[in-house]
């Protein structure tokens, strides 16, 4: 009973938050409401005993993806977003058609996936017998898939090193392309220079 009450509380907060995201004209408010929604969805995942999904929800969505959004907002210096003025009239009608189609697609895919996995013997009981989702996923990830997993971490390391190499501020960066802007001839010389 307590679970049901908690579910209703968190789920309705998530829906209210999501509604807030798309109705606020202040981008920063929308962003904060998005975090709020993500955290509530994570709570719903916790209530359904999908602990791994809950953790991922917080780490990836409320953490990484939100930071990305915040960066975009800061980069573009967005403050207000007036949806009605910035949307083309025809887009509104397209939404009326496309949104139900998208909803139908999601329902079909989720129902279909559930149907086939139940057919293949992957039921909640079977997963529980294996020790739960987290355990099964962890065993797969750190046994069968250990090598690709570690290689993926190496790819991330390369990405970080690359970001530093390409973006680090250096002393005496007089060769920087931006310093040539304004002087067209010099800029052209840089473009044509062989390396």
């Amino acid at each position: 009973m307590a679970e049901k009450i908690l579910f209703i509380i968190f789920a309705s907060l998530a829906v209210l938050g999501a509604l807030g995201v798309i109705t606020r004209t202040n981008i920063v408010h929308g962003l904060l409401l998005l975090v709020f929604t993500f955290v509530n969805v994570a709570a719903v995942f916790l209530l359904t005993q999908a602990y791994f999904l809950a953790v991922i929800q917080v780490l990836v969505y409320a953490g990484a993806i939100l930071v990305l959004f915040a960066f975009v907002v800061m980069f573009l210096n967005l403050k207000e977003f007036h949806q009605l003025e910035q949307l083309h009239g025809t887009q509104k009608w397209a939404v009326l058609v496309l949104a139900p189609i998208l909803l139908a697609e999601i329902v079909v895919v989720v129902a279909g996936a559930t149907w086939t996995s139940v057919g293949a013997g992957i039921t909640p009981d079977a997963i529980a017998a294996q020790g739960g989702n987290v355990r099964v996923l962890g065993i797969t990830l750190f046994n069968e898939m250990l090598l690709p997993f570690e290689m993926a971490s190496l790819i991330l390391l390369v990405g970080m090193v690359g970001a530093i190499v390409l973006a680090k501020k250096e002393d005496g960066a007089s060769m920087a392309l931006r310093d040539w802007t304004g002087d067209e001839e010099a800029a052209q010389a840089v473009v044509e220079q062989e390396v």
């Binding site: 090598l147 690709p148 290689m151 993926a152 190496l154 790819i155 390369v158 990405g159 090193v161 690359g162 190499v165 390409l166 960066a173 060769m175 920087a176 392309l177 840089v190 473009v191 220079q193 062989e194 390396v195």
Partner: peptide, 25 residues
């Protein structure tokens, strides 16, 4: 394993190609 190997090679190669960040080419 093949695919992560391919991507590790590829991502490193992109960075090496752009190593002279002050040169347009």
């Amino acid at each position: 394993a093949f695919y992560v190997g391919l991507e590790l090679m590829a991502v490193s190669s992109y960075l090496l190609a752009g190593f002279f960040r002050y040169h347009a080419r």
